[in-house]
Amino acid sequence: MNQFQYVRPSKQQAAIEAVAKDANATFIAGGTNLVDLMKRGVMAPQKLVDINRLPLTRIDHDPGKLRIGALALNSAVADDKQVREHQPLLVQAINAGASAQLRNMATTGGNMLQRTRCPYFYDTAMPCNKREPGTGCGALEGINRMHAIFGFSDKCIAVHPSDMSVALVALDATVLVSGPRGDRRIAFADLHRLPGDTPEKDTTLEPGELITAVEVPDNPFTKHVSYHKVRERASYAFALVSAAAALDLDGSTIKAARLAFGGVAHKPWRLTAAEQFLVGKPATEETFKQAATVAMQGAKAFKHNEYKLRLAPNTLVQALKNATAA
């Protein structure tokens, strides 16, 4: 790993300026992904701006919404009484990610900004447009069993690895951002981007912009929720496919639904058409299967991830079954 400058500003604005003014500077919070990438030479910032001591750890439930500070640890969010009460889907998704130790380090903002786990991105001896634009996508014609079936481009077929983000996109969260040109709010669905011709850009954040909090509006999805994550072992693994399902039931009739996939695209994948399809229908496996078919429209597989075309809809059905039974 290269040597770097380390600074630990005590004020948010100073941190933002430090990064905004230096193209080779980056924020570090939990470090669970950045340190890993630096060790492997995938990222080599020359200045680290440690934001861990900024006062951004609060979790508050105000009327109508939950506000989670960007530096609230994943474990703190998952164990928080207010979050458990108002946003149980988010709790399930967070607890499906990583390990207890990592959730004690990873922050809310950092979790959203973790980078893909594509092995071509991680190995500096392999081609990867995300790591080194112009070198080609190693996975496109390579080993692509973990890769995207939605929203990819011929430049990049990587997937976003966050579980938490899948719940947040389903729950219509909003990201609060502070930057050199002031504050702004970003709908969670607009935070991550598709690779297109510039897969090196994971998000729509501008240089120096710092996530300060995420807001999740209150909703009726406090009981019938499920985050079902299919992986190659029972815990502590990235998803092959995951599905977030939240239902508002009137007896056995679906009043409203929120659905999203993880492990299928460059961003957490909201399923609005399938949500619409479910409204007013009975909560039965047959309905769920039809909704899953709707959800899969436009999916396309590569050589090794063809199974995702079956696994993704099935996982969604399983999540919907779990949610109904919850």
């Binding site: 092995p119 190995d123 392999m126 390579g142 072992r233 815990s235 693994a237 990235f238």
Partner: peptide
Amino acid sequence: DDRFGRYVTKDLADYHVPVQAD
């Protein structure tokens, strides 16, 4: 990846061994 003769599953996140829950 036979094109490069290089493994793509080189660490414990890509090569899965059983964890406690398994």
